[in-house]
């Protein structure tokens, strides 16, 4: 087992799994901090994955694909805002509807545009290639993890400190936190919280879109029905666990991504695929239980 963890090729595969979860979770974190209970990350991711393939296929550029993915995510963010913020629909109901909408639209468009069911792969889909970082790639072990990943991985990595500083020191960051903590106070201060929440939703859509792009045009060069496969939900859990704080979020995403990667890896060791497929969800549950147990213990300690 230890051999496996220290195997550089295993370690190098972790970022592929971390990136979509991290990007989606960062988006979800913005919503969480802004007081929008967005559990439609699964749908956002899926839509992004499809739009990325669409953009890349028709333009021949992964960057256009990523842009299309961001736009698609933002479009869903706009839908969320329209029905939750403006029309006052319940956020859980809206989330469930958006998850279904994404599942429906992607399969529908898959047939309507490409005339295939299940999956679409084509040489015309151009994916992100590995980005080699000079100097860093020469560092043993670490270099193999940090270098040679997709551009989206570096974007995700950069987003963590950026979001931390943004929330702590930026005007909009301050207002996002206020919208989530005490929206009424923000309104009394003269800033309409729903506007701030709309911005958070759009940014969340863009980030999730990028996460989807990582799934479809960086990890592989194809789109499969329902290819987000629960990662959006894992991102939701990561957000809830960390209450949307960027750094803890990063480490949780790293953990979930590593388990995801590990489950892929141990398939080669003769364990039935069904059991390895289960691992990310069981790991998520275990982390949930462990963290709440730890928090309860700490809360007891505090009062003593």
């Amino acid at each position: 087992m230890l051999d496996l963890l220290l195997d550089p090729s295993f370690a190098a595969s972790i970022p592929r799994f971390v990136t979509p979860i991290l990007l989606a979770a960062l988006g979800g974190a913005l919503c969480e901090r802004a007081g929008v209970f967005n559990i439609a990350l699964e749908g956002f991711l899926l839509m992004g994955a499809f739009a990325a393939v669409l953009g890349s296929y028709f333009s021949g550029s992964p960057y256009v694909g990523a842009l299309a993915a961001m736009l698609a995510g933002m479009a869903l963010g706009l839908v969320f805002a329209e029905f939750n913020l403006r029309r006052g629909g319940d956020s859980i109901v809206v989330s469930i509807a958006i998850n279904l909408l994404a599942a429906g639209l992607t399969t529908f468009l898959l047939r309507a545009i490409f005339d295939v069911t299940g999956a679409f792969s084509d040489a015309g889909i151009v994916g992100f290639g590995p980005v080699r970082l000079p100097l860093i790639e020469d560092i043993p072990f670490v270099g193999q993890i940090l270098s040679g990943q997709s551009a989206l991985f570096y974007v995700a990595l950069l987003c963590v400190p950026l979001m931390h500083v943004f929330l702590a020191r930026h005007r909009l960051g301050l207002r996002i936190r206020a919208a989530g903590e005490n929206a009424e106070a923000l309104r009394a201060g003269g800033v309409e919280p729903r506007r701030v929440q709309l911005v958070a939703l759009l940014a969340c859509g863009a980030l999730c879109g990028l996460g989807g792009a990582q799934l479809s045009i960086a990890n592989v060069n194809l789109f499969v029905e329902n290819m987000s496969a629960g990662r959006g939900w894992i991102a939701v859990v990561a957000v809830l666990l960390t209450r949307g704080r960027p750094w803890p979020l990063f480490f949780i995403a790293l953990l979930f991504g590593a388990v995801d990667s590990l489950s892929f890896r141990v398939q080669g060791l003769g364990l039935a695929q069904q059991f390895t497929d289960m691992m990310p969800y069981l790991a998520t549950l275990i982390v949930l239980v462990a963290l709440s147990w730890w928090r309860a213990r700490r809360a007891r300690g505090e009062t003593r």
Binding site: L100, G104, F108
Partner: peptide
């Protein structure tokens, strides 16, 4: 697959009218 889209759209439009005090 249009069925899923129709269902989702119906829920989106109706969700904002029928208040389910859930979240």
């Amino acid at each position: 697959e249009i069925a899923l889209v129709i269902q989702a759209v119906i829920i989106l439009f109706v969700a904002s009218r029928v208040s389910g005090a859930l979240s």
